[in-house]
Design a protein around this nucleic acid. Structure first.
Lengths: 346, 346
DNA sequence: CCGCTAACCCAAAGCGCTTTGGGTGGGCGC
DNA sequence: GCGCCCACCCAAAGCGCTTTGGGTTAGCGG
């Protein structure tokens, strides 16, 4: 069933039927209801390919997910971010086009999306310190928003959390508890957010006159295993840390495992504070966790970020002249059971 | 730049240029290279909307991700499955259309995809015991493949793992170690795979003359928190289990946390065996984990399943007459450090 | 030198929708 | 009773591509 057939069966022109379906005012209310009834009865839906060609809009938003490194790790936070964005897209009538590409080929993917018009805008995630994507998208004149930010971020739209403040605060929290040998288990430091987190960490230490110890800082893909390995190495080494600042909950779980294997209990023998993206399948929140959240954490919902990014992006698409939208979100420090006072001097 | 402009600039017809670009034999090799060079120089890519309208193929595959329940939990395994499928799509020139819908509205989403022709086929995940989607898709005549299976699964394409055998085997493994009070922490039992796993579990117990204990069986969304809560309840209750069979690694981590808080070490004081989807950010494999995988597990790569499902689906799309393709994958039992002999009778 | 076949190329007709630029008829004001 | 303006509807022109159904030319055998 297509528009022509439907209109013929109704004895109306395609124009009228199209207008009736799309809510234009030029058609009598009685006619409209008749058309709508017929469309429903015939299970008619306008062919999206044709509609897109005719309108020139793709009604689609592209997400290019770079598969990092050789192991092609997929960041678990992508899923929640996607869901948040997807909710908004669904509500606003947009499709989500997901493109998985090896890390180096993201540029090609964007370029193609722009030139073949398959999307109206794109979502950019995990910006690196030097990231060609932003200049590229500006050149291609494709609406976009960056989750995170990098470089000179005054001229494009982004949404980010206050990473420096969050990690300064987290570190201060541990310092206030009397910890002095504090380790940082960070994300890959070619990513902008990771470097900011490190800066916050170092600033807090510096403010108390503590020099950062290279052997207490590691950075890599934020997997459980990395957290485990890093913590294991540090705990077994000389001058082991009494506390950890960790960049995500997954490596924090790894730290917990390493500590557990060494007979240490979190919050008693060793402290861990991490950033919590509020992933739905972890549930590190006070409401659902009896006795409080397992991890003390700086929190910010990645799904909510996805939602908001989607909203902004759609706004940018609909209003081409819009000035860049930039939002900096504060994180929330929530007390959990993974932190406690530093063990008395040995 | 569109086809008309490109062909005019070359002094050729649109037909010839189109044929040259699409590799048809009717064009001289010299002409073809000239066209290709011009296209590259002009950064031309055929407009995908127009191409799709003209060919009648969407070159897109739909994934409808149901957001389960009110909390709208997003299953972490979706991410890895998506990546696997996405790799294949990218290779074969297909786009991935991701549609997030509340659990009840999946049917509407499929129906719409079918009637507006936005996809050539769809991927069905997490089939429930009674699942209208399969009959619906057959009625809509939309190519599809089910990851998992349900009901009478003789008439459609699916790929599944041998859940019953996997969980029977896992349970036998614990029985062989001398455990008799074995708990099951399962996924939601309105899902087909969860019920199969339970069956495997119960069969293994029955073979040794052990009756399943209702208070040692819980089923829910496979989150870390659920694993924790379930294990905590069981461990603090009467006749606590000495071993756990767990449906996924995330709740298994929760079990580990509950055990750790009670001073129990996995593989020594308590045993845990789980199903491991080989998620990239956990890395529960021997190769990357020093000292062996933390969890003893039945393993099967969810990403590999995504890849294979995508391949099959594309096959089904390209060859409409194809008979249903059905693959049953065996899982691999890998020894980890989370299991050990049952504590001697107290 | 003629006719036939390859090899190349082209004009034009869709694909199914939206949107422009009218048309028609009835009601209303004067 | 006339003219004008809405309210309602329509025919047709795109959107940018693929594909059908020829056309033209050169080369070759007879």
């Amino acid at each position: 069933m297509n528009l022509r057939e439907l209109s013929e069966s109704l004895g109306l022109s395609q124009t009228t039927v199209s207008r009736a379906l799309n809510g234009y005012p030029e058609v009598r209310e009685e006619t409209r209801t008749r058309v709508l009834a017929a469309a429903r009865a015939a299970n008619y839906a306008p062919n999206s390919r044709a509609r897109r060609l005719a309108t020139g809009r793709a009604m689609t938003i592209g997400h290019v997910v770079p598969l990092s490194g050789k192991e092609e790790m997929v960041n678990p936070i992508f899923a929640d971010f996607l869901v948040g964005a997807g909710e908004v897209y669904a509500r606003e009538g947009y499709d989500l086009l997901l493109s998985m590409v090896p890390n180096g080929e993201a540029e090609r993917a964007y370029r193609q999306m722009a030139s073949n018009g398959s999307v109206d805008g794109v979502m950019v995630q995990s910006p690196r310190l030097v990231d060609g994507r932003i200049a590229l998208l500006q050149e291609l004149d494709l609406p976009f928003i960056v989750h995170g930010r990098t470089g000179d971020h005054s001229n494009y739209s982004w949404l980010d959390i206050a990473n420096i403040r969050a990690f300064r605060r987290a570190t201060e929290f541990l310092l206030d508890l009397g910890h002095t040998r504090i380790a940082l288990i960070n994300g890959p430091e070619d990513l902008d957010f990771a470097l900011r987190r490190r800066r916050g960490f170092e600033e807090a230490l510096a403010a108390r006159g503590i020099a950062p110890q290279p052997h207490l800082m590691q950075a890599d893909l934020m997997t459980e295993l990395f957290g485990y390995n890093a913590a294991a190495t540090m705990l077994d080494g000389p001058e082991p840390p009494t506390a950890f600042v960790v960049s995500a909950i997954m490596p924090a779980i790894g730290v917990r495992r390493a500590a557990g294997e060494r007979g240490m209990r979190l919050g008693r023998d060793i402290s861990v504070i991490c950033h919590d993206d509020m992933l739905s399948y972890i549930g590190n929140d006070a409401a659902s966790a009896p006795g409080g959240p397992p991890f003390t954490a700086t929190r910010s919902s990645i799904r909510e970020a996805g939602r908001r990014c989607a909203e902004i992006l759609i706004d940018l698409i609909r209003n081409p002249g819009l000035a860049p939208v930039q939002e900096l979100w504060e994180t929330e420090l929530t007390l959990g059971r993974s932190t406690g006072p530093a063990p008395s001097a040995d």
